[in-house]
Design a protein around this nucleic acid. Structure first.
Lengths: 214, 214, 214, 214
DNA sequence: GATGAATGAGGTTTCATTCAT
DNA sequence: AATGAATGAAACCTCATTCAT
């Protein structure tokens, strides 16, 4: 079974609860594999149940319907990502190091969760189509939270005179984040053409020096 | 009927061929409207045929199947975008102006084709799912072409001493392009929070001044 | 195929329309047979389609869903009954003869449509359960219409001095109608115990002479 | 919890047996509520178990299956009705009073058990469908018993010269009974149109005076 | 004895595609 | 060439019933 990256926290639970959690995990993992392979709309509940080795009805005990299952899947992964990124920003004390750590962590998340990234991009970038109704709310909230945090790092750096007095720290945060993403997507699409953006400075240097010759 | 932005080039064609082209256009336009409203998977061929005012069978004379129709649709729009962006880069002579014009044009394309952008993002960001099998090839090729062109502009600017001697012009091109996209996506998602990024300099300034205080 | 009693009026229709009507008829007849045999809830659409020798999808072209099919079926039969009963009341000029004719016609309808009677009683006497939401409205309207007509016959008879001056003609109408029904239901349930109530006077005599010895 | 009207006779039973009876009662009451609210086919065993606050398995200890539960329910109610009606007929000594009391009791039963009446009519009028296979036998037997009792009252009245010498006392019994039912059904269907048939004489008077002017 | 998690057959309905007209 | 009626596989989901604990 492929690396799915789902976490199970099993501490302090009764045997029954642990069992439930393990089942839920099996289902999410099976669904994730299939969705990753074929995309949400090309996977049937039957298939998921069979791969997870549960009866259909059991699956429906855990998730109201296919969409619910999908949302749970994305939400749990997205939470994992979120936590890692928040942690990455907050751990170091130095602003430059915070940025570097953010980029480095994002890089690791990309590399370590390729199937999920593909799945998420495949099904979710859209706004307001059936599937994303309530899902995006949560994911977007987290995205905005990252941007705010990044932005705050920049502002703090400006105040500390670590950074030049830039006009629009939020805009720069957006730029840095989207650039990291873009680098990784290029790598994903055509790894032979675009090297894996391993070194966080490879991205950050773009922003460290201004473009215009003065 | 909503503005769909499909073009018809009818020069040098027989009456019969022109008629065919017009029919094809009707079908694409109808499909586009419906896909935009509801997403690919929530639109039936029946619906498209009815909206286009053709018989289902006629539709199948023009497109092998639903997927084919969708791909044709995206491809034609993408070609329109591509042409506009290439033109935007090539028209001005000055490198800074080329960048500005690229950003400005992309902005106009976003604003003027919101339904399509949403549709495209909703259905296509994914790699290698059924729907995108052959589609992405073409779209990606065009994306890479833009990046190359942008990159060439930067290199030329460096040679002309208009720009500082940056290490990775291709990377900067990626950064600029993805940042423009990110700004527009934020605006699309939450226009009340993120103002429409009208002024091309708003984006470019981020790259015009380096971050680190020296 | 059992006698279903569905009517087709095919005059003045194009070949296509006649064909459609015949198909619809086939479907209703098949559904009717099955519903009669097993009751609404024990018949699947698959079964109906197979018995009618159509594809499921074709069936859904004619009826929105199973319930719709059922309602159409009941409504068409009920209309047939209604027309016959109205005609029965209105044809004779004499009031006593009107009553006799009503009873006689109801008797014929019962005898000639036993499967439908059973089906209708099985599925429809209830008030406001899913199935009857809009159906009862129409059927009840017709039932009330009969009662009114019967009642009017009684009033007219009173005015003509054909009948004694009874206090509550509407109540008597209800009594006569429900008694006819009850006689037939008893016969249906246990024909060996309750003879077929052929002679209209057998019912009417009950009401022709008062009970109390004066 | 709504008034369900289930009775428990607990005399002369061991503690264990009394407990069992109470459990059975709980289950029937819960099932009755739900069936009344939504109809047999729209209620699941799961729902009943939850409402009754028993495990599904426990429920299956008491009733072989869903149908069995339903039949028990109807049978017990029907028995209650039967007993009340028999008692109503037998209590008074005078024949007219017996009739009056019968009508009055039936009226009370209708009014006091509307949900059940609806449920019964909704699911049971049909003959010989799965649901009623063995059920109707019992219910019908009781119905016939009432008719016989009513009929006997009429015959006795004739012998006593309380009633005119009518030809078909059994038919009259059927007529009276079905008319009482019809009055109540009309009231149930459209109370604003048909007043509650409270006064037993309102029904009986119809039969007390003959229709034809002599 | 009581439990309720697990089952999976079977329900209704949709819709891409075909092909006779 | 154009049509659109007909198809039926396959989708999602429910729920009566079983049986290991």
């Amino acid at each position: 079974m492929m690396q799915t990256g789902f976490r199970m926290r099993e501490e302090n639970l009764s045997r029954r609860e642990r069992e439930k959690l393990r089942q839920r995990f099996q289902m999410l993992a099976a669904a994730f594999e299939l969705f990753s392979e074929k995309g949400y709309h090309n996977v049937s509940i039957q298939e998921i149940a069979k791969r997870a080795e549960f009866a259909i009805g059991t699956l429906y005990k855990f998730f109201q319907n296919k969409e619910d299952l999908y949302k749970a899947l994305v939400l749990e992964q997205s939470e994992k990502f979120h936590d890692a990124l928040v942690q990455a920003i907050e751990a170091p004390s130095d602003e430059v190091e915070k940025l570097r750590n953010y980029v480095r962590t994002k890089s690791e998340l990309f590399r370590g969760n390729l199937p999920f990234i593909r799945l998420y991009l495949a099904e979710n970038r859209g706004v307001s189509y059936t599937l994303n109704e309530g899902l995006d709310d949560e994911v977007r909230k987290r995205y905005y939270a990252h941007l705010e945090k990044l932005s705050a790092v920049l502002e703090s750096g400006i105040k500390n005179k670590r950074f030049r007095d830039i006009a629009d720290p939020y805009g720069l945060a957006v730029a840095i984040d989207s650039t990291v993403n873009a680098f990784h997507l290029l790598w994903m699409d055509a790894p032979e053409k675009h090297p894996y953006p391993e070194d966080p400075d490879a991205v950050l240097n773009i922003f460290f020096k201004g473009l215009i010759a003065s």
